[in-house]
Structure formats: C-alpha cells, structure tokens
Design a protein around this nucleic acid. Structure first.
Ligand code: ZN
Ligand code: ZN
Ligand code: ZN
Ligand code: ZN
Lengths: 135, 135
DNA sequence: AACACTGTGTAATAATATAACGTTAATATA
DNA sequence: TATATTAACGTTATATTATTACACAGTGTT
C-alpha cells in the first residue's frame, strides 16, 4: 500500500485517536486525548503515544513542538509530513498549518554555510491571530 | 540597563547555569543541568527552570523545542532572541544555530494567506551533519 | 512450521515542568 | 531614610509528558 497518508489504512486505535484530533478545533495534548478515548477502551498512555507516533510518521497529524500538542494535517500538499510550518497565536493558542508554496520551496532549497540542504524542517511562527489582533 | 543580552547582568544562579550551557558542546537538558550544578548549591528543578526561563527571555540561550534542550546563543545578530533557526543532525544530535541574513529576512517578512506577519519564529532543520554524511 | 513484522494490553517508571509558599535582595521613589 | 515594588531565591510537593519492559495476537513470507 502507498505511504501517502490520504489512503493509509489505520488500525482501530489509530483511527479512534485520529478522528478525535481531526474533529478538534485546536491542538490536543496526549493526556487530553487519553481522557477522551477511555470510553472507547484505550486506557493507557502508551496506547495513545503509539498511535500518535504512527500518525505523525505517516503524516496524518503533526506535533506542535512548542506546545506538546497534536493537530490533524489539512494540507494536502504535505504528504511527506516532514516539512511543516504553523502559525500560533500567543493569546488564544489557535494554531494554523501554513501551506505556502513559496515558503516550502524557500526552505527546501535553503543551504547553510557549509552548503548543506535539509529536506526536513519544522517552523513555528508566533504572533496574534486576526481575532486577537482586533481586541 | 539595556536588555541586549551581551551586557545583561546575570544573577549568581543564572551565571552558573549559563556558564555550564555555554561550555557544553551540545544542547543540555534541564535535569542534566541540575545534576551538574548541584555541587554549586543549586538543588531543585525549579531553580534551574527559573534561570533557564530568564536566560531564554534575554536571549543568552535558546530552547531546542524538538529536543527539550538548551544551547547558548552564539549568534550576535539575534539579540531579539525570538527569531531563531537551527540545524539538527538526526544521527549525532549536533545542533548548530543558523545565522543567515537571507533566511531571517525572508521569515521576518513572510506573510500568511491573511497577510499576517509574525515577528517571532522558531525553525528547526533536520538532516545529517557533515561528519555523519561522510560515514 | 518457523520467522519477521506490526500492533496490542498492562504495569511500572522515567523525564520534563509547574504550583504554592514564604523569604531575601535589589531597585525605585517619596 | 523609609518604604513600596520588583525580581530572585529556597523548598516541598505535585503535575504533565513520555518511555521501558514484558507477554501476547494477527499477518504475511519462506
Ligand atoms: Zn500537514
Ligand atoms: Zn488569537
Ligand atoms: Zn541566537
Ligand atoms: Zn551528525
């Protein structure tokens, strides 16, 4: 089967946890996920972390490193799952995945002083979202 | 006193912890720092975290979010401390702060779909360092 | 069958980070 | 000087995030 995340067959636990994250309007933390799926039989942190690891690996979700939280990928162009960019509101904590061809091209082609290129990256922008700017 | 980190006067605890991180060839984790400064009278996690928070705030160190670790800033142009970029070797875990005028200019001027600009960002590139590439 | 691979369930524990409290030192300003 | 304010400190306890270890089940391959 292809590894492109739109078609990867999830296991039961993976599907339960993905559905929860996918429905959530905001990034979810692991133990909040655990609390929410206990009624579905997922009882232990490890069950959650294992599913999260896999979902990250196949690009269905991303980890917001500065928040230790997870969001579903809604960027059909980021199937590689290893080149991600987000904007984070420092007031309301709203997180949005950025899908900018220009940005991803710039970063994918970026070379450091030694001429090294890096195919994987994670970029987190911080500021105020539209709503919070107006307040 | 200026807030520019090259001249900010550190307290005793801050200085002890900064010196340790500054000497380290690799990013240091909080509890590793704690272990290393216990002989100097810093006994509790909170003492470490308070110093780390302050040192990050004034730009003397940066947190590598994907590793929960801290490195000293060696980039004289990043006095703002809120616009950081690093390369991380996935094999040997070597971390290097990237100081590229082009990159920081590009990111500082980046606008999302709504035209929002973000003054703060953190970018982590992943790949293999020169040494590890040759192996 | 034997093997490799992936996922599961469970318990225990490790690693990272903060809350709450009272005290002390440095700084500002009246 | 006095006194108000702020920042840092020390300590204990606790919260939050993540992994180790072990036994087992399903699936596909040889
Ligand atoms: Zn994505
Ligand atoms: Zn907001
Ligand atoms: Zn720096
Ligand atoms: Zn390396």
């Amino acid at each position: 089967m292809s590894k492109m995340h739109k078609e990867y067959a999830l296991t039961k636990n993976q599907q339960i946890i993905f559905d929860l994250i996918d429905k959530s309007p905001e990034p979810m933390k692991a133990y909040s996920i655990l609390f929410n799926v206990q009624k579905k039989g997922i009882k232990a942190p490890l069950q959650v972390y294992r599913a999260l690891d896999k979902l990250v690996e196949i690009g269905k979700i991303h980890k917001i490193e500065s928040r230790n939280a997870f969001i579903a990928c809604h960027n059909s162009s980021c199937q590689v799952a290893k080149a991600t960019a987000f904007s984070i509101c420092e007031i309301c904590e709203k997180v949005t995945e950025i899908s900018s061809a220009g940005l991803s091209k710039y970063l994918a082609n970026f070379k450091d002083k030694d001429g090294m290129k890096y195919s994987k990256y994670n970029l987190e922008f911080f500021g105020l979202c539209k709503k919070c700017t107006l307040k």
